[in-house]
């Protein structure tokens, strides 16, 4: 049996790619501040990479009290084993109470590998993290495709670990000049275990936008139906300074790229305004957008489930309403 009192502080895996800190890392540091506040402990960021010195200061400014940095050429690109060795060695040396990872393709590859190596629990895609009366982590996440929420605890093992999707936790405002302590950690690599090599990376840079960062989303579904329909949505988005997103049906049909997909298998978004156009509102879609600030839905079917979460709903044809709305808003904006 472990002694839980030996495990202290809230750690965040400060995910970076090519020397760029990922927004989810800053969001998690913000959440870690709340948790550390409730526990009376510190927020520690674990930064692994190569030539990442310049990323330390922003981690302090977003709320880290301490940054543990391990900087090595082996960590230049993310590879499971190299990163697992680094973070495993940091965790076993420093004994965190809680460790948070972004639920990205990196975090969702690394965290389960570590949970097995550490023989501790891991809860995926948490939407809510709180501290219980007896100072343990309560992790709430959707299950059954977003139909059910479950609150999960890891009471007898440490650290308590969870992943959180990008865009779910709000970032704190940075405090310029805020500093903290830096711990330099040297990973001892076991090369015999390194059996995967990165041969090539192909980036798709075209029109790359992060819909989780958008303040306004103009989102289309089956009712929009085709590329021409989405061109109209794009015009509306331009008037509003918004981004265009889509439901799974439109992504599966190849009309919109996967990085624009909202929902359980796409992205979780919380814009100030979400326009759901021709989206019926399958539970998997609702799970990805129902926390939006204000939801306007337009759908032909007055029984569409999207109207259960919308602030205003219009029963009508999106293909008629969208161009009219774009024109009217253009006039409004010029006033």
């Amino acid at each position: 049996m472990i002694n839980k009192n030996d495990y202290k502080n809230v750690y965040v895996f400060a995910e970076q790619r090519g020397g760029v800190i990922q927004p989810v890392a800053l969001e998690l540091i913000g959440k870690a501040r709340d948790l550390a506040g409730a526990l009376g402990s510190k927020v520690v960021a674990m930064l692994a990479g190569y030539n990442v010195e310049h990323l330390i200061q922003p981690l302090f400014e977003y709320g880290a009290d301490e940054v543990v940095v391990t900087d090595h050429i082996e960590l230049k690109d993310y590879l499971t084993e190299q990163y697992a060795q680094s973070i495993y060695q940091i965790i076993t040396a420093m004994r965190p109470d809680i460790v948070l990872f972004g639920a990205t393709t990196i975090g969702r590859d690394l965290a389960p590998r570590l949970s097995a190596r550490l023989a501790t629990g891991l809860t995926a895609d948490c939407t809510k993290l709180e501290i219980s009366e007896d100072k343990q982590l309560m992790m709430t996440r959707p299950a059954f495709g977003g139909n059910l929420m479950a609150t999960i605890m890891c009471t007898e093992h440490r650290p308590q670990m969870s992943t959180v999707r990008p865009g779910v936790m709000p970032k704190r405002d940075p405090e310029p000049g805020r500093t903290g302590s830096i711990v330099r950690f040297e990973t001892k690599f076991d090369h015999s275990k390194i059996r995967v090599k990165l041969l090539e990376e192909v980036r798709e840079e075209k029109n790359k936008v992060d819909i989780t960062e958008a303040k306004i989303l103009v989102s289309g579904g089956r009712g929009v139906g085709c590329k021409e329909g989405f061109a109209k949505l794009q015009e509306l988005a331009e008037v509003l300074g918004a981004e265009v997103s889509a439901s799974r049906a439109m992504v599966d049909a190849g009309i919109m790229p996967h990085d624009r997909q909202v929902g359980q298998t796409g992205k979780t978004v919380r814009p100030d305004l979400y326009l759901a156009l021709g989206i019926s509102g399958a539970i998997q879609h609702l799970a990805g957008m129902e926390e939006s600030g204000y939801i306007v839905a337009v759908n032909k079917d007055k029984f569409a489930p999207i109207f259960n979460v919308s602030d205003i709903g219009i029963v009508g044809d999106v293909n008629k309403i969208v161009p009219l709305l774009a024109e009217r808003l253009r006039k409004e904006m010029q006033k």
């Binding site: 023989a119 501790t120 629990g121 891991l122 809860t123 309560m138 299950a143 139909n147 059910l148 929420m149 479950a150 609150t151 999960i152 605890m153 890891c154 009471t155 007898e156 093992h157 129902e290 939801i295 007055k302 109207f307 259960n308 979460v309 919308s310 602030d311 205003i312 709903g313 219009i314 029963v315």
Partner: peptide, 18 residues
């Protein structure tokens, strides 16, 4: 190591006007 403390449906939001 992980145990489900409770499971619940999200509760229904009061729908807006249609």
């Amino acid at each position: 190591p992980t145990k489900v403390l409770k499971a619940f449906t999200k509760g229904l939001k009061v729908p807006g006007e249609v």
